[in-house]
Design a protein around this nucleic acid. Sequence first.
RNA 1: GCGCCGGUGGCGGAAUUGGCAGACGCGCAGGGUUUAGGUCCCUGUGUCCAUUAGGAUGUGUGGGUUCAAGUCCCACCCGGCGCACCA
Length: 930
Amino acid sequence: MVSANSVPSNRYDASLANSIELKWQKRWEEDGTYHAPNPSGSLASDSERINLPKLFVMDMFPYPSGTGLHVGHPLGFIGTDVYARYKRMTGYNVLHTMGYDAFGLPAEEHARQTGQHPRDNTNSNIENMRGQLRRLGLGHDLRRSIATTDIDYYRWTQWIFLQLFNAWYDDENKCARPISELEDAFSNGSRILENGASWNTLTSQERKDCINSYRLAFLDEAPVNWCPALGTVLANEEITPEGRSERGNHPVYRRPMKQWMMRITAYADRLLDDLENLDWSDAIKTMQRNWIGKSNGAEIVFPVADKEIAVFTTRPDTLFGATYMVLAPEHPLIEEIVPSSWPDATPDEWKQGFPNPQTAIKAYQQLTAQKTDLDRQENKEKTGIFLGVYAKVPVNDKQIPVFISDYVLMGYGTGAIMAVPGQDERDWEFAELFNLDIVRTVEPPTSWDGKAFTGNGPAINSDFLNGLSVDDAKSKMTEWLDTTGNGKIKTTYKLRDWLFSRQRYWGEPFPIVYGEDGLPIGVDERQLPVELPDLIDWAPRSLNENSDPEPPLGRASDWGTIELDLGDGLQSYKRELNTMPQWAGSCWYYLRYLDPDNNQNFVAKDIEEYWMSGDAGGVDLYVGGVEHAVLHLLYSRFWHKVLYDLGHVSSLEPFQRLYNQGYIQAAAYQDARGMYVEASEVIEKDGAFTHNDEQVTRSFGKMGKSLKNSVTPDEMYDEFGADTLRLYEMFMGPLDQDRPWETKSVVGSQRLIQRVWRNLVDEESGNLNISDLEASKELRQLLHRTIQAVNDDMENLRFNTAIARITELNNEITKIPEDTPREVAETLVLLLSPLVPHIAEELWEKLGYETSVVYASFPQADTSLLLEESIEIPIQINGKVKSKITVPSGSTAETVREIALQDPKINSIISGKTIRKEIIIDGKLVNFVI
RNA sequence: GCGCCGGUGGCGGAAUUGGCAGACGCGCAGGGUUUAGGUCCCUGUGUCCAUUAGGAUGUGUGGGUUCAAGUCCCACCCGGCGCACCA
């Protein structure tokens, strides 16, 4: 039906946009337009592009959730797509694809609720998301797409696990090596056991235990984070600062359990040092540095009763100022040293009314155990109690009292400190509370009126250190400790080993079995994959903090036992029933993109070398949210370094350049009860907001289901089209910044495409409407200045300003009364094509090209056209602009000065006055000071 | 408390090395096209004063350096993020 109004039949509107978009999406898929050739293997081709420099662009892959995408999700995906398209047009073989991080809790929860197998649910979610991303026109090489749940994928995740299981960390050479080399070294005597025992005298069981204790993936009985609500244990990285689960915010309890661990601590120094060479934001680097938490210092041994207690300090130079010692309430030696009665002359305030140290200590320990981590953090009032014993300071033989207090943490250092109130604020506070001695060992400045002095200054009250600076005193004291055997240099880290097992169904099974001796054995790699069994029983279990975790795989009874021949005949083995955490699959997916069909190897060596080469090597651009700063990014770097050590990859780091995109936020509305109401139903009137005639209040937050403020891409396609959505998201602001979504502003981006279309195409007939005449000099100059600016912006991911420059150019084209000259029209289409690929393809085709615009050359500026013949220069008097003059470019300062002085306005201001100073900046401005 | 990032019109945001603040877009106002609304097109739009010409003022606050400061320096306020009794 032709409507009564007179909208031209070929106006660029949503329906035209949609038909163009669907046409090209189909064409691209049929033509394999975005297929990037590999140097060999199943994805090799005779394409010349293999000879171009490579570029590997990647997004943090999404979890395929059941609710689908909202417009906030694809911001980074569009950004990488624009960049990848730009680089394709400037002569790169670009690899860009998308995978799915598809193991995880939601699919399992869904299975519990519906009885549907997680695999079915996951696969349909992936299909749904693929469709949504395809509709956006993202230029992905879909042959390379993987899901972590694919058996052909997790087979190799298991293979990498075996690499870690079958490796140990050689501290001397600072790299991972095959575990067989360690065994050889022990048996031929080139390496001796830590406890000095002889390898030959060990039983075979003892040898296995010894070797197992060295593996990079190992079983350990250690306090872990047990979350009964989720039914699983969790890594430290998955616990919030409040001590709850990151997912779901459930309570978490610390309990010792035997679990799989990854020896990430062995890589602490390399993970820290190699940050230097990465092109990552300082914010993320700082977060990783904080998480690793390295501090250099010394371990000093204090005799206490008939025992020795080691403390860790970063300030060995202050040892002469140690006036008491504090142990963490959980310190294992407490029970062995606590006496049955208070020593003579113990001050009453140290006893706190308790009849003897043993009851006092017990009471304090109970008090601490009741405190949550949050209490312990928030309430920083010092508390503690005297342990009833004294320690001897090694350097001056002073007897100092030993306390326990919860301001000392068992999880850091040795769980014991020497307290130096003179140089430590916390110790000063504690010393005041218990009336303990305070000895300054660093002289504060004369103006100092504070308490503890933590700055630099000459050592005092410190015998052989007196007069030395803090740094010199540290090294001298460390030397003394070392030669006298009272201590040694020590480095500590906050980083703990990575808890790697989960009691979940929907994850990778471990390629591990247990023999009769109960020790873990790695499955032979030829027996991979270890496939997840199908489960029937999805019923939830009610667990509490005292329950033991129940791995769901334990319910698949046949599966748990297996007959294997591991070299000594067919025997029965028990399978590991835990599964790997979700981070396992995301640790290495970038490598599988490179060679997804390879069934001989996780990636072929030459293909890996081709795509991962570069300055320091790795993915050339990795874009994603800041929330993965320490989890995924740290784990992935760790695995990559292990693979590097074992010779499986060629680059030291996985991600050379990391870019954190911002989030799209949107207005959210709450009613009087504080409940969120559907944002799309809120009506604004005179600055007030109502929902069903009820007053609501507005705030801004991350777009999503919980704030009921989602806008879906589908709504945007119906109203504007995918190109408009892409353009709007790129135009909203810098890619790394959060920005509020405003549906009413989207029309501006549609107008730009509409005007470009109208400048090239007759809206009535749909025919090309351009001229073969040359562009005017002015237009051509503007064209080349635009080309220059857009290239610069694209290179630096500044898409918002690139779009502004293109808009300016198009506004000028709109103003010329004649048809648009072809050279301008073609350039405009090319400049726009990374941003709005569908309409660009359509126009490119109309312009007579038979090959895709995707591989056309991006315009390069003719620098000779960038110089202007004449330029406008502002003339200031006393720094304020009073007039402007136009002079030929390249005019001498003297000429500019003459013309400026002749300007009538300037002349009238300065006539009769003396010019005290003249500033003439070539081509920029003139300033007369009067 | 410590560290990092940020604060520019009604709104999103532009401004190489200090050199014309507010590019580009939204919104708004006026006009054109249209029976009307919408679409589309044109013009204007930091604030204040002035009918106009023009003038003053202006980048969180207060100081400073400079011929010239959104940009550099000092002190502070506000917002976001990270770390937080780490010895």
